[in-house]
C-alpha cells in the first residue's frame, strides 16, 4: 500500500458516494447512464469472487464489500426506485459491442485458463470501457449536470492515481501487472477529453457542462 494507491481507492469511493448521494437526494437519475452502472456492478461482481477464496487484508475485504454494495444500490436506485426518472431514451449505447470483444479478449489474454482468472481478466477489461455508455450519453445530450461531472472527475482521478501507484510499485517492489496496467492506461485515456472540459468549464463556475 502506498499513498497513490490509497488516494486512488479514496477517489473511487468518493466518486461512487457522490453518485449515490446525488441520486438519493435529488430523487432522480436523470443524465446518469444505467448501463454504465450495471457494467460497473458486473465489474465488481466478477473481480471480487476471490472474496470467497483468499483473504488479503481487512482493508481489502471491507473495500470490496463496500464497492459491491454501493454499486448494487446505485443500480437499484436507477432501475427500481427512481426508474421513472431514468433517461432510457438517451442511454442507448449498445453494450453488446463492449461485452463481446471483452469476453473474447479475456479468454485469449489471461494469466491462467481457469474460471476465476478469466472472470478477473474480464472485469479488468470491462472496467476499462464501462464508462463509455455514460460518456456517450453526455455526448448525445450535449450536457451534464455538474454533480455528474464531479462523479466522472473522481472516477478519472482514481484511474490516474492507480497509474502513479503502478509506477511507484514498479520502482519499489518490481511489481508489474501487465493486464491491469495496459487496461488501466487505456481506461485513463478515455477520461482525458473529459478532464479538459471539466477544468475549462465546470471549474469556472458553470452549473452545467455544455459541450462545444
Amino acid at each position: 500500500m502506498n499513498v497513490f494507491r490509497l488516494a486512488g481507492d479514496v477517489s473511487h469511493l468518493v466518486a461512487i458516494i457522490i453518485l449515490l448521494v446525488k441520486i438519493w437526494r435529488s430523487k432522480s437519475c436523470a443524465g446518469i447512464s444505467g448501463k454504465s452502472q450495471v457494467l460497473f456492478a458486473l465489474v465488481f461482481t466478477t473481480r471480487y469472487l476471490d472474496l470467497f477464496t483468499v483473504f488479503i487484508s481487512a482493508y481489502n475485504t471491507i473495500m470490496k464489500v463496500v464497492f459491491l454494495a454501493m454499486s448494487y444500490a446505485t443500480v437499484y436506485l436507477i432501475y427500481m426506485r427512481f426508474r421513472n426518472m431514468y433517461d432510457s431514451e438517451n442511454d442507448t449505447f449498445r453494450v453488446e459491442f463492449l461485452l463481446v470483444p471483452v469476453i473474447g479478449l479475456s479468454f485469449l489474454e489471461n494469466y491462467a485458463f481457469t474460471p476465476l482468472e478469466i472472470l478477473w481478466t474480464f472485469s479488468i477489461f470491462l472496467e476499462a470501457v464501462a464508462i463509455m455508455p455514460q460518456l456517450f450519453m453526455i455526448t448525445k445530450t450535449g450536457e451534464a449536470e455538474s454533480i455528474t461531472t464531479h462523479y466522472l472527475f473522481f472516477l478519472g482521478l482514481y484511474r490516474a492515481l492507480y497509474i502513479a501507484n503502478w509506477v511507484w510499485r514498479y520502482h519499489t517492489e518490481e511489481f508489474f501487472d501487465q493486464i491491469a496496467v495496459v487496461s488501466g492506461v487505456v481506461q485513463t485515456i478515455f477520461y482525458c477529453d473529459f478532464f479538459y472540459l471539466y477544468v475549462t468549464r465546470v471549474l469556472r463556475g458553470k452549473a452545467k457542462m455544455i459541450l462545444p
Binding site: D9, I56, N60, D177, A180
Partner: peptide, 10 residues
C-alpha cells in the same frame, strides 16, 4: 504479501 497478478488491488 501480494499475489502475483495484482489481486491485492481493488
Amino acid at each position: 504479501s501480494d499475489s502475483p497478478n495484482g489481486k491485492d488491488e481493488l
